[in-house]
Nucleic acid binder design. Sequence first.
DNA 1: ATGTATTGTCGTAAATTTACTACATAAGTA
DNA 2: TACTTATGTAGTAAATTTACGACAATACAT
Lengths: 208, 208
Amino acid sequence: MVEKILVADDHGIVRYGLMMMIRKIRPDVLVEEAQDYSIVLEMAKKTPYDLYILDVSMPNGSFLNAYTLLKKYSPQCKILIFSSLDEEIYAMRYIESGADGFLNKLASEQEMQNALEKIFNNGKYVSDAVKDSLVFYKKSKSKGRQLDQLSNREIAIANMLVSGKSLKEISQELHLHVSTVSTYKTRIFEKLQIQSLPDLIKVLDLNN
Amino acid sequence: MVEKILVADDHGIVRYGLMMMIRKIRPDVLVEEAQDYSIVLEMAKKTPYDLYILDVSMPNGSFLNAYTLLKKYSPQCKILIFSSLDEEIYAMRYIESGADGFLNKLASEQEMQNALEKIFNNGKYVSDAVKDSLVFYKKSKSKGRQLDQLSNREIAIANMLVSGKSLKEISQELHLHVSTVSTYKTRIFEKLQIQSLPDLIKVLDLNN
DNA sequence: ATGTATTGTCGTAAATTTACTACATAAGTA
DNA sequence: TACTTATGTAGTAAATTTACGACAATACAT
């Protein structure tokens, strides 16, 4: 049973909304908040939570890194991704990376309550739309959208590049060698058949 | 005095959070919600609101268009932009376009409550940071947009950069030394107070 | 099950970009 | 007008990024 929840999102209003909603659904659980990855990890280290509701695109960290540590602190914890990314593209990626659920911010209050209810019980959730696309996910992934050509790591790095981070910054953030990040960049450009950062921005904007 | 509010955002949790927060601060006001521009306009047409809290990046419409119509339906209405865009870059643009306030989603619960309180009373709000940059903004240049700060040459080069050209390419095209182009780039970044190419793209898009 | 393609990761050398510094000229201002 | 600031332009050294080449570990298809 879920008893302690940590809500993490850089937008204050989102944290507020989530906390209010959770308290309404489960008045008895303890809900706390964090606004970036580093704070999440800090709080989790001190006292592990049963459920983490994370906006993946937060400052000071990355999902992959956070995931590893959170599971280390409390292996049985649940992680729900709460994101504004297109769920049909990203949901499965995160689930495969270990998340226990994916909920899009576009969701209505009702959907969100359903999702939370479900997670409070069995700890798993994806929307029906995602389930549907999952059916033919494995088959049709040959073509589909351009972004599907990229691996998770590549997508993560593409996003960081688009946000204006330099190779060096990315390498530090992810604890990788600069040349590793450079290779990712090269591969991303190759796969998407582009040759500049502005091109990448266009492609990514197009896909979300 | 504000009596009827329409909260518009495509993210359900944001609407939920805002409505909860408003009801807590002013239990007596009527708050309703909409998830895109077309719904906002439809609702506003039926019954005008005193205050519109709008996320500018919503589907089915644009701020400029919505602004015109909303003011037509009820000229004295207030419009507050509630956005995740960087306020120091975007706030003034929206204020100049007629918005009555700009509030960033990164704000904490407390800050947001302060802002809302203020808006309920005098119908105006921008963060102190924005006010500061406003002072500087008005003082430095008559009014105009950021691009006015750039010289013609700088604008030309900014556009080439945004189109994805490298320093080397630009230098060849313009028959300049690479370091000259580099200096232009540095000055452009300084003047616009940005630090990456993606930032430049945003600024230029804004001033299209 | 086995070979092929993809992914994650580096190292090194070469190419490009940045950070400063400089300076002459044009513009703007007191 | 004299003074200050903005603009167009480079040079050099340092920092960053790119191009390639490698290689182990997966993943995938036959």
